[in-house]
Design a protein around this nucleic acid. Sequence first.
DNA 1: TCGTCTTTGTGCGTTAGCGCACATACGGTG
DNA 2: CACCGTATGTGCGCTAACGCACAAAGACGA
Lengths: 245, 245
Amino acid sequence: MAAIAEKEPVRKNYLLACLEGEEFKRVFKALEPVEFELGHVIYEAGDKMDYVYFPTTAIVSLLYIMEDGGTAEIGIIGNDGLLGVSLFLGGDSTSNRAIIQSAGMMCRMKPADLRKEFKLGGRFQDLLLRYTQALITQISQTAVCNRLHAVEEQLCRWLLLSHDRLDSDKLVMTHDLISNMLGVRREGITIAAQKLAARKLIKNTRGTIEVIDRQGLEDASCECYEIVNSEYNRLLGRGISRTFA
Amino acid sequence: MAAIAEKEPVRKNYLLACLEGEEFKRVFKALEPVEFELGHVIYEAGDKMDYVYFPTTAIVSLLYIMEDGGTAEIGIIGNDGLLGVSLFLGGDSTSNRAIIQSAGMMCRMKPADLRKEFKLGGRFQDLLLRYTQALITQISQTAVCNRLHAVEEQLCRWLLLSHDRLDSDKLVMTHDLISNMLGVRREGITIAAQKLAARKLIKNTRGTIEVIDRQGLEDASCECYEIVNSEYNRLLGRGISRTFA
DNA sequence: TCGTCTTTGTGCGTTAGCGCACATACGGTG
DNA sequence: CACCGTATGTGCGCTAACGCACAAAGACGA
């Protein structure tokens, strides 16, 4: 594990951290760290993807853009996962945009290296597939949540998902950006954020939302957060060592 | 291909129809046809899955049930796909219910057989992974559609997706059931269906909706149908022969 | 043919969220 | 420190969809 010191941040990505021995060495050699700023677009809908990305400190938002300009987020990817499942699923592109929601680092890998390692069918493949299912759960829950829950509950869910993937309690994020993610009006977020602030769950300042009462936020959230979260743990937590072969 | 005659309907499933030679023979041997009635629950949220299912004439609906009893569909699976991606993704269960939306046949396969064949990394694996991406697209589009589009547009989308997976123009389906799928009020479906009937796009009788003007329905639908549809074609259409290795 | 159950139709009042139009306030820059 | 662009706060009227209550009309068996 001497090599880790060189590109230390690699281990901050959960999937990469699960690898060991020769497998880790091979993957590690193929990785390249890159830094991203808030708002940077990694790829647009329909773009052929050039890399798969393993976030270490950055957070990525998967955003759909409709014909009329309306937007809605379908998933959040942090250091618990990877961006670019299409590259091993076989599509090479998706119909959404991937955009940096929180500045930071990601490790990228070329599609050819990814596929080569994936084809070996070891732990790496297992992890990637399990993560894919976790992502499906997240997207599904977003779909249901969009239909059935109030904006305020959804804001809680969104804040929690982001907070989990962040070192800090401060989310650098305007109401306007959040409204794009949740697919609602900017004013709707302002109102909801005010209510949460009144209940001392968050602190609401210009361009930043600070999480004050994490537990309170969880209580105020719809069930969707917890479902997604526990499914991530089930799929990628402790028991991860077993491959399904 | 002599064996096909025995279990002829196998070829009605698109994924199975794409297999050839030895690979097809192995998969074919592991298949077992089963018939299902409308409303039958294949598995509940959290259930360990006993089989993977390849629909030939049946249609399956993936339904989320919330704590408060609210429901919403996240995807429709017909003879273009398979039920149980979790079995090769590694989760063995999902947090939704799979329910028969249209009576008919499916071919089922034991998880062990599925995984064994999947691990071989051939066309079968390629197809399953590509289908997974198509399913992700469908779920994503549902999420966005739930947020941004009107019930009437969504009803069109839903009718089209169902119609595509059906031999007949007649959908045996009550407004109440559809409302569960779309996560809206029953009355909302009644109103929307009336409007579509007034425009001569569908015929609305007790317990059945008949598609009259397919093209008209597509025009009345939101863009979501077309996006999902073309993504299915892109991922699983003609060019399917290339494996990504 | 009658009675019953299910499905569909209709009519309220209610509400969450929208769209628009501003007012205010923060915070970096010159 | 004054200025200005961006972010947030607030107040409308509007609309889609909700929740509820009940009427009408198919379907089907006795």
